[in-house]
Design a protein around this nucleic acid. Structure first.
Lengths: 199, 199
DNA sequence: CATCGTAAGCACAGATGTTTGCTTATGGGC
DNA sequence: GCCCATAAGCAAACATCTGTGCTTACGATG
């Protein structure tokens, strides 16, 4: 007991820790039964010492934000289809696909909540949301560059983003078929031939 | 230590406790800087012993749910205007008024969160949401009884509820004027003045 | 006015989450 | 191949939240 024998103390590399912790967050979020999702629990599930998590991310809030943005940007990417309608529909389709999985719903929910107990300031939260909205802005810019006339952001927010987020947050399944197209039709007008609808 | 002198131990009545705790939750939620919103903190702010809170509500989740439903039912009530359009507009107006205040936004947000760390099952969460949706159902029933033909719940969800909730959660201010009417027009069709207004 | 059930307050114990000082693998640069 | 900065692992202290047994004020009932 006096000496410390090098008890073959295997350790993970920083990248391994990052990966394992991220996966553990996803696993525990998706787990049924309301797991606690505390740092000790996450670290244990990841096979990592909890101090490593504390030192690297500092707080659970920061950890969740990291996981969420990483995953969302991977699972809800931005496509370039060549038309405004195509881009919006693709975006909605990716969203629908995401919120059909428990993991996806939880990710979107996590964006909305961000912080379980401690509360971000509103400005901070809005900024966080801005990152998510960035893809919408890009879609609008591309459409404008093509000479199309995209609806204002507020309309896209109300008619495209809001329904998807609401369903993700409250776990309401979207209609089985045609939902992305339905939303885009409401937004752009049900005219497949552009030009007549508003704006 | 041997004797217990009745040190004029003033105590609040159950109703006083309830009121003080509810108010403390609101105060701490509205407080800037990300207060912890733990039961001890709430109890302290309310001037109540924390055991009283534990024994009465059991968990923070139950306490928040109680506060939120109480307040929301008071601040976001249901009006009977005699027409479907009127009822929906009134509902949207109440919602807009609510989410214009920081407290109102936080209440709506709290409905979305419901549970900070522990996670409700999806069914449980959906049920919780159902309570909020009850007013929508009532509006539809009344309209049907009048012989009107209300839109399906899903449409009201997408076009009326979702925009309000999204704005509440992310702190996006609704348009300064005419927003309730705009949402209802989108939902029911802009049958009154076929204006071009989409701005 | 006396009695009784309810529930608030208090003190303390138990469990859980958070933080710190230290040791020592790991991987890159010289 | 040696040396060094980085960061993971460990243990123990620390803070905080959660729960329990008990006393006792409050209000209702007779």
């Amino acid at each position: 007991m006096t000496s410390k024998q090098p008890t073959s103390r295997i350790r993970k590399s920083p990248e391994q820790v990052r990966s394992a912790v991220h996966q553990a967050v996803i696993d525990l979020m998706s787990a049924p039964g309301g797991v606690e999702l505390t740092i000790p629990a996450i670290a244990h599930h990841a096979g990592v010492n909890h101090t490593s998590v504390y030192r690297r991310w500092g707080s659970r809030e920061a950890l969740l934000a990291d996981v969420v943005t990483t995953r969302l940007e991977r699972d809800w990417p931005l496509h370039d289809t060549g038309t405004l309608r195509g881009d919006l529909t693709a975006w909605a389709e990716a969203g629908v696909a995401s919120i059909r999985t428990p993991e996806g719903r939880l990710l979107v929910r996590a964006v909305a909540l961000s912080m379980p107990s401690s509360a971000h300031t509103q400005a901070e939260r809005a900024q966080h949301f801005q990152r998510r909205l960035h893809s919408i802005e890009r879609i609008r810019e591309r459409a404008a560059a093509r000479g199309e006339n995209p609806p204002p952001v507020e309309e896209i927010l109300d008619q495209l983003v809001a329904p998807l987020y609401l369903r993700a947050i409250f776990g309401i399944d979207p209609p089985a078929t045609g939902y992305p197209e339905l939303l885009v039709d409401r937004l752009l007008g049900n005219t497949r031939t552009p030009g007549t609808a508003e704006a």
